[in-house]
Simulated scan of single mutants.
Amino acid sequence: MHFQTMGRSGLRVSRACLGTMNFGTGYGLAAGDETEAGRVIDAYLDAGGNFIDTADLYHRGETEEIVGRALRGRREWVVLATKGAMPVGPEGRGLSRRHLTRALEASLRRLGTDYIDLYQCHQWDPDTPIEETMATLDGFVRSGKVRYLGCSNFTAAQLVESQWAAERVGGTPFVSLQPQYSLIQRVVEAEILPACRRLGLGAVVYGALGGGVLTGRYRRGELPDPDSRMGRLLGAAMPGATRWAESLLNDRNLAVAEGLAEVASGLGADPAAVALAWVASRTGVTSVLLGPRSVGQLRENLAAFDLTLPPEATARLDELSDPALTPADGSFFHLVPR
């Protein structure tokens, strides 16, 4: 497993980050067996990975509890990241001092730990002064309950405001951002990734498989298998989930997936591995979030980090996924919270 420092910090993380959103049952969209989740975590750590990401929102806190139980006895060997800002139950939301303080304490309790290595703001809060947020987060660092700070789904302008605010209050700046990035969603290349490099933030990218579209499971003109991720989302009683699935299963994205499959076939590789290898090779990407449901999926995903794409394959993928054709509002964060 290869490692890289996170932005302008000394935090070293593996290039493959284990995402845990599939561990749990709280959304009614996944049957996240805790035993299998434990096996996935074991296999990831055995493969040399050290970076596990979760959030209080995931399955209404159940995911943090699963991760906490799985890490008992080996917590100190893991870079553990979680996120706060979203509502978990009736206690509110946002990046205010009140909400973040409650959210951090609840995450520590569920994870069974007394510190978080990387604590992240899950989304921008337009109702709270950013100075209040950054001062609150700095207090977490000074208390020893948090080691490093990051954010997720911030725009380039919001990153700049946050780093300036940290400087104004004499606080701790962010060292990471979680943006969506894949062959079907390259909007971040225009401003967000350049801002991360300029401001000293590492990028931990999510959605690298385009919600599963880039795995080759879906075809134009065919309904998704009801047992597939897109099939479950389309059949869910959640309008946001349905809109997100429909936005991904458009002709343009499926055409990119078909072209990706052709490139992968020429390389004798799996389309998912090629899609992950492409994202991992992009300038400014520190780590790539994986979201396996099983040990088998994890091992298939990890193969991508041993795959070096030849220049002609990269050029073909770049051409297929021209970012000028990607809708600016295509982030699935805006449709389904993650």
Rank of each mutant, 00 (worst) to 15 (best):
A156N: 11
A157S: 14
L177H: 15
Y218R: 09
V187A: 10
L223A: 14
R220D: 08
T242P: 07
D227C: 03
D227L: 03
G210M: 03
S228P: 13
G221I: 11
L209M: 07
L223S: 15
L159R: 07
A165K: 03
S182L: 03
Y206Q: 03
L159C: 12
R220H: 11
P226K: 03
V204H: 01
C196G: 10
T172F: 06
G210H: 01
T172Q: 06
G211L: 01
P226A: 01
R219M: 07
A165F: 06
G200K: 02
A236T: 12
G235M: 01
L183S: 05
G216L: 03
L199V: 06
W164V: 15
L234E: 06
M230C: 02
P173W: 08
W244C: 10
P226W: 02
A236H: 08
Q180H: 13
Q163P: 13
E161T: 15
W244L: 09
Q178Y: 09
E246M: 14
Q158D: 13
A190M: 12
Y181C: 03
G170A: 01
E246W: 11
L223N: 12
R198W: 06
G221H: 12
V169D: 08
A241F: 12
E191R: 15
G207A: 08
D227K: 00
A237D: 13
V205G: 00
A236P: 06
T215W: 02
V175C: 00
M230D: 04
W244Q: 11
R219C: 08
L234M: 05
L183T: 11
A166K: 00
I184V: 11
W164S: 14
A195M: 10
T215D: 07
Q178S: 03
P239D: 11
A157I: 14
L199D: 07
G235W: 02
R243F: 05
G221N: 09
A245D: 09
Y206H: 04
A208P: 10
P173E: 06
D227T: 14
A157P: 12
R220A: 14
Y206E: 01
S182Y: 08
P224F: 04
V188A: 15
L193G: 09
E246F: 09
E222A: 10
S176I: 01
R217T: 08
R217V: 05
R198C: 02
A237Q: 05
R198H: 05
S176E: 00
L177A: 13
R243Q: 12
A166Y: 06
S182Q: 10
I184Q: 00
P224I: 01
V160L: 14
G240H: 04
G231K: 03
E246N: 13
F174Q: 06
S162N: 12
G210F: 05
R220G: 11
G212A: 02
I192D: 06
I192R: 02
R229V: 11
T155I: 14
E167Q: 14
L177K: 06
P224M: 02
G202A: 02
V187F: 10
E161Q: 15
I184P: 07
V188D: 14
L209D: 00
F174I: 04
P239Q: 09
G202E: 00
G211N: 05
A166C: 04
A203R: 01
L209S: 00
R198Q: 10
Q163T: 14
D227M: 00
A166H: 03
L209Y: 03
G231N: 07
A241E: 13
I184S: 01
Y181D: 05
A236I: 04
W164P: 11
V187C: 10
G235C: 04
L209T: 02
I184R: 00
